[in-house]
Design a protein around this nucleic acid. Structure first.
Length: 459
RNA sequence: UCCCCAGUAGCUCAGUUGGCAGAGCAAUUGGCUGUUAACCAAUGGGUCCGCGGUUCAAGUCCGUGCUGGGGAGCCA
């Protein structure tokens, strides 16, 4: 008999008769005459209830089943006379695949996120984390679906990079030399290393993506990204997934239009395809989630220039811990005020002073600002960071010299501005940040399977 | 990296002025004919985060380290 997954069974209108399910025992309520078991196979949030009568062979073994044990159950799918579920299975055969001993750490009660992080290998077996990682999977699919529908090409850029100045924070060094050899060298000699020069894990696929946007038109990358920053916050991990669209013939406004469309598309997909899992987050994780999702879907995102934002903050009358100063980066409290109190919805902040932004951002006509954009989301902070890129070779080279960047290392990047350069734009969206937004989960470590953070690389 | 808070049973936590180590849940055993985080009864369960100090006496006070959480910076 062929196994049926529980998500398929639970939506049936009428019973097909006998069915075979396989899964893990979530809870068992036993008595002398019969036992109820709830089985989950990961296909959906819901369990299916099994009724096991004492007449079954090995009933004493069935009665001894524990939470976490794995079983295979064949029986008749019948309408449940009890409350709380439509269907249940009246078991004919229960095969015990493996009994989980009493040391199984997951109990039939709520556990703290902190505890579950210490057993990250088992936490996907809980309702909350099962829902989280089903949703994560569905959102990754929706990313590809969105870009397929829009005619973008999927680009996989290198994870190991030789550019030492990608410009976004500390990098992890990649080497094949063993520490003893390096010690004997006295001073690190990269020419003896695998690639013959210093190499690192990528902090962004953007520069590569720009090259392909100049060829394929619209591209996106979606893959792991690494930052060696010693960041200890609920919004940072050392290894995360980033989505980076890059679009030829696109200016900053087109960039924002695209970002807004993307966020709304993914959100709508979650609402339409993940309703059951989403209901868990709405009910048990974040009571304000429903309203926030409604705002995401139905409001037009605000768009404010950095200069206007500074004015708004200065006139707000708010007592900020840090002063608002034109020419410096906005503090968290300032960004939060703009998104959560002033706009009460996602807001694109644009046109930052050029001295606080990287070399590749396009210099505006005022000569003071660049065509940068950040999307700030209430409760999350920065979800998207991007820009229109500097496509004018002379302006780009001047800027790089100003910032003391070694032009020769970027010869290939500059070639794109030499040969058929066009206006183009793109941004990076933190995939985990998006998941936090759509689930209401407050710690980024809880939306990634095995989080990597400073001092922590278990599992 | 900086600031603040916490660390006691498998989990969540209480522990008064420094004076015998506690509860709920879980586990184990038994009972129970339709349960829904089932219910009822009994039983077992401790390096009070580590190290050092003060004291007749430290879970409690002091120092230090580690781990975790919240916030800041960096950013996605």
């Amino acid at each position: 008999m062929k196994r049926t997954k529980i998500n398929v069974l639970l939506v049936l209108d009428q019973s097909p008769g006998d069915v075979l399910v396989k899964g893990w025992v979530r809870t068992k309520r036993g008595s002398k005459e019969f036992s109820f078991m709830e089985i989950n196979d990961g296909s959906c949030l819901s369990n299916i209830q099994i009724l096991a009568d004492k007449d079954l062979t090995h009933y004493s073994d069935i009665e001894a089943l524990t939470t976490g044990s794995s079983v295979s159950v064949m029986g008749t799918l019948v309408e449940s006379p009890g409350k709380g579920q439509k269907w249940e299975i009246k078991a004919k055969e229960v095969e015990i695949i493996n009994v989980a001993p009493e040391s199984y750490p997951l109990q039939k009660k709520r556990h703290s996120d902190e505890f579950l992080r210490t057993i990250a290998h088992l936490r996907p077996r809980t309702n909350k984390f099962g829902a989280t990682f089903r949703l994560r999977s569905e959102m990754a699919y929706a990313v590809h679906k969105f870009y397929k529908e829009k005619g973008f090409r999927y680009l996989t850029t290198p994870l190991i990079t030789g550019s030492d100045c990608e410009g976004a924070g500390e990098m992890f060094r990649v080497t094949s030399l063993d520490p003893e050899t390096v010690k004997k060298m006295g001073k690190m000699d990269f020419s003896l290393d695998f690639f013959g020069r210093e190499s690192n894990l990528t902090v962004s696929g953007q520069l590569s993506a720009e090259m392909f946007a100049m060829a394929l038109g619209d591209v996106y990358t979606f893959g792991p990204t690494f930052r060696a920053e010693n960041s200890n916050t609920s919004r940072h991990v050392a290894e995360f997934w980033m989505l980076e669209p890059e679009m030829a013939f696109c200016d900053l406004n087109g960039n924002m239009d695209h970002g807004e469309e993307l966020v709304k598309y993914l959100t709508r997909h979650a609402v339409e395809e993940c309703a059951e899992d989403l209901s868990l987050f709405k009910n048990f994780v974040d009571k304000t989630l429903e309203g926030r999702i409604d705002i995401l879907l139905n409001s037009e995102f605000a768009r404010i220039t950095y200069t206007d934002a500074v004015d708004i903050l200065k006139k707000s009358g708010q007592a900020f811990e840090f002063p608002v100063e034109y020419g410096t980066d906005l503090q968290s409290e300032h960004e939060r005020f703009l998104a959560e109190i002033y706009c009460k919805k996602p807001v694109f902040l644009t046109d930052y002073p050029k001295q606080i932004k990287p070399f590749y951002m396009r210099v505006n006509d005022d000569g003071k600002t660049v065509a940068a954009v950040d999307l700030l989301v209430p409760g999350i902070g920065e979800l998207i960071g991007g820009s229109q890129r500097e496509e004018r070779l002379d302006v780009l080279e001047a800027r790089m010299k100003q910032m003391n960047l070694p032009l020769e290392n970027y010869w290939w990047y500059l070639d794109s501005r030499k040969y058929g350069s066009v206006p183009h734009s793109g941004f990076g969206m933190g995939f985990e940040r998006f998941l936090m937004m759509i689930t209401g989960i407050g710690n980024i470590r809880d939306v990634i399977p095995f989080p990597r953070t400073p001092g922590s690389i278990d599992f």
